[in-house]
Write a protein that binds this DNA or RNA. Structure first.
Length: 130
DNA sequence: GCCATGGCTAGTA
DNA sequence: GCCATGGCTAGTA
């Protein structure tokens, strides 16, 4: 497990991007904003809605310059673990803790280190947002 | 050639 | 732990 985390860490604070959002980023932000408050979705689910790949979704969210306008904190890993935030995947980091606090303040519930199943947004909502 | 993914093996115990 | 995948950036020419 420590290795799984190490694989995704350490990460450096992402550079804010200066260019205009690409078409892909605009579509991603739109779908992301469709996740209701109190719910979460996954990188994989967004990728399906966008007909893209989970990796591309994660990469784009990593550099999301529109937080918190675009609620990228509502996107978590497929196994319903918290996932990354503000450039890092390390669950010990204050950044990931902030993501958790944000979600809890919106009504998302955790069971251990995972999000409760019934807090996952309906994939149809995402598809409809494209 | 990088990644905030995810799915799949291989190798250990 | 490997690697397919897709979108992007950096660095070269």
């Amino acid at each position: 497990m420590a290795k799984a985390i190490a694989r995704r860490s350490p990460s450096v604070e992402p550079q804010p991007i200066k260019r205009d959002p690409t078409l892909f980023e605009q579509r991603l932000h739109k779908v992301c904003s469709a996740i209701p408050k109190g719910k979460v979705s996954t990188y994989g689910a967004l990728a399906i809605a966008l007909k893209s790949s989970p990796r591309a979704v994660g990469q784009a969210l990593r550099r999301n310059p529109y937080a918190p306008k675009v609620p990228c904190h509502r996107v978590v890993a497929h196994d319903l673990k918290i996932g990354g935030f503000s450039g890092t995947w390390d669950p010990q980091s204050g950044r990931v803790n902030r993501k958790k606090a944000l979600l809890e303040s919106e009504g998302v519930r955790f069971v251990g280190d995972k999000i409760a199943d019934d807090c996952v947004a309906d994939p149809d909502i995402l598809a409809a947002a494209c």
